[in-house]
Amino acid sequence: MIKTAGLCFRYAGGGRNALSDIDLEINDGDFFGIIGSSGAGKSTLTYALNGLVPHHFRGDFAGEVTVNGLDTRRSAPEALARHVGSVFQDIDSQMLASVVEDEILFGLENFAIPREEIERRVEDSLASTGISELRRRSVSSLSGGQKQKVAIAAIVALRPAIVVLDEPTGELDPQSSRRVFEILKDLNEDHGVTIVLVEQKIMLLCEFAKRLAVMGSGSLILSGPVKDVLSHAEELEEAGVNIPRVAALARRLEERGLYQGDVPLDIGRARIMIEGILCDASF
């Protein structure tokens, strides 16, 4: 459970607030997407959740962030890391070892996980991200998509209740991006891990996230279930966020008085929408 109340942050030497007055609640088991134009404060918000703000990045901090009941200002990032795992966009630089297995071991060793448990954790984390066969491979021989899965596995091995990801698919092609989202979905559904995800790929967010927040110049503009957020087309446009084409289609049909109802988020539901329109007309 993550809670922020009146969270404001300004980087040391920064001209304006990177975050201003953020009130947010993310419940256990949520799949929470964050979207917004660049410079909107999305990354800074993830730093506030994993404690890098204010411990690593210094600046003026106001308000409160609690993660599983821990006040982030009073807990060191290492202590928070037991609750919140973090995955970043830049794939190569977050790798710390040259072999996949060592990459997974790094965190487990540091957090002094008992020896007898380590082997099981390594196996489980590799299995749950679908990369068991990569265990002995050298990191440099992997593709971008595989590396990002290793990064996720290294975090999952620490069994955090929450995983925060900052544009994890930024450098990946559509197929690999989708696979990363599928892994996150499994973690979320089968292992009850709370996922907090900053992402520009609106179509994937719409398909996988349960709730969505839209940020603009440091503030939270919209937040709620994906369908509700998508129905605020004007605010979205103002925030520089596009909506999936099928959602745009639904809006156009609505304007013409042809459709009323939920915004479809994927092609399957868009098809049901159109078939529904045609079916209604037959009576």
Binding site: Q175, M203, V246, L249, I267, R271, I274
Partner: peptide, 15 residues
């Protein structure tokens, strides 16, 4: 080619 079409053409094909 392991590609996915854009949404509207994909919807059009499925309809």
């Amino acid at each position: 080619a392991s590609l996915l079409p854009a949404q509207i053409p994909a919807l059009a094909m499925s309809l």
